[in-house]
């Protein structure tokens, strides 16, 4: 049954049957599916990573602009609420990232089998430093991020809107907040590069 059109390249059109179309769709879905390992790597790096970045962006803007001469009273209340949401989301995402990374993904990375990413990296002297330096630093330094993000979240939740009256504490929070991001960025960068060199499948 010829019931659909398929476009091949520019201007090349031909009819295909329903059976062929379904087969093609199934094949495409199969090619797009994720393995169990890939799914958790995605949760670890992209789901929590995206929330982390959004939280950082919102929190940074909130902390930076929480100054009396830039705000109306109504603006402060709205800003304080968004700031609380931003820093709390970043802290939760940071914990989610390190917990899934350490307890779910990392065991697969270091599994003592020839095709684990660690084994692949160490098998070639040209890639061994990705493990010895990149992974070794990433797996440790990442844990500083949730600790610092939680500290900032505590300061913001503790003072709320009145943080606007504590300029030094606002700057202190900014320093710790940016440090939390930097440590996560180091870990995220090495994670991405290592995954590119030796993917976890």
């Amino acid at each position: 049954m010829l019931d659909t059109l398929r476009v091949h390249g520019i201007g090349a059109v031909r009819f295909v049957s329903r059976e062929n179309r379904l087969c093609s769709v199934e094949k495409a879905v199969a090619q797009m599916s994720l393995t169990h390992h890939e799914f958790w790597t995605l949760v670890h790096g992209m789901v929590f990573g995206a929330v982390f970045l959004l939280g950082f962006t919102g929190g940074l803007e909130g902390l930076w602009s929480l100054r009396p001469h830039q705000m109306t009273p109504e603006g402060v209340r709205g800003k304080a609420l968004r700031l609380k949401i931003g820093v709390t989301a970043m802290a939760i995402a940071a914990w989610g990232t390190v917990l899934t990374g350490t307890w779910v993904v990392y065991p697969w990375y270091r599994e003592a089998v020839p095709d684990s990413p660690r084994s692949i990296l160490l098998a070639d002297p040209a890639t061994a430093e990705w493990h010895h330096f990149g992974m070794e630093w990433k797996e440790h330094v990442a844990w500083l991020s949730p600790i610092l993000a939680t500290t900032v979240a505590f300061i913001v939740l503790y003072y709320g809107a009145s943080l606007i009256r504590h300029d030094r504490l606002r700057k202190t929070s900014l320093v710790l907040f940016v440090l939390a991001f930097v440590f996560a960025a180091v870990a995220g960068l090495f994670g991405a590069l290592i995954t590119k060199t030796a993917p976890l499948v």
Binding site: P68, F154, I155, Y158, A161, H166
Partner: peptide
Amino acid sequence: ANMDTGATAPEYVEATDKPEGPVAAAI
């Protein structure tokens, strides 16, 4: 020394201020 003494700042928030000790402890 930490308080922003801007003239309009107090009207934004509650009058009572919290001690800074818990923040120092967290840091």
